[in-house]
Design a protein around this nucleic acid. Structure first.
Lengths: 109, 109
DNA sequence: TTGACATATCGACGTTTATCAATATAATGA
DNA sequence: TCATTATATTGATAAACGTCGATATGTCAA
């Protein structure tokens, strides 16, 4: 393993495809089987392609997976997604890192 | 123009390369000429490659450019970077979107 | 005006990636 | 058991991408 890429690059690569982002939208807040996603993609891509994209999302830790019989259900891992975006902002937009304020720092009235 | 890609895909593609991310780090909070960057990359890539990467960042609106004589200075556009990350979180991590609160929504005491 | 410097562009090359048809694997129901 | 369904894997193909040497373009200094 000579050329291990960083988390931030893995994350960016996972997002760097139109169809993959559309799949991610379909998996946001919802559990879907592979064939569900194929249907939702409306013929734009075939089943093996969807499986391929899901594998990339899985390798990037961007989906949770639940196996049930012959089905495999996927949903978006929002927590990890949020964490990656946080890292990106801290790395590449440090001037804006303070512009969002964590709720616990706000005094109750 | 049949196949215009979304902002979020353009943004992700711009980040989806190890060397490009390293260049972005070198441009964060600092103005650099092209040859400055070539030097900072320590021989990993040549000048035409750096120019190529800078063009991709420029097309993604991720750098500010200042021309000065025969030099071209670049620096990271943190505001746009931050905005893109915000869009991504709203799109793909809506459950975490409320965990950070914009300052203007907080009443002064 | 000339030569050196800074950067962008071009053209070629090898690698990576997205895609699909075909097939393998595995679970289900008849 | 057997046909069907759901998904993953394989192998092939084309397109996209990163890289560099060579070169074009433009600026500066002597």
């Amino acid at each position: 393993m000579t050329n291990m890429e960083t988390n931030q690059v893995t994350f960016a690569k996972a997002l760097a495809d139109e169809h993959r982002q559309e799949i991610m939208q379909h998996l946001c807040c919802v559990w879907c089987s592979v064939s569900d996603i194929v249907d939702k993609m409306g013929g734009k891509v075939k089943q093996p392609t969807v499986s391929h994209h899901l594998k990339i999302l899985e390798d990037a830790n961007l989906v949770f997976i639940r196996e049930e019989g012959r089905h495999r259900f996927y949903t978006l891992n929002q927590e990890h997604f949020n964490m990656c975006c946080g890292m990106l902002v801290r790395t590449f937009a440090p001037d804006y890192n303070d512009q969002l304020i964590p709720p616990e720092s706000i005094p109750v009235e």
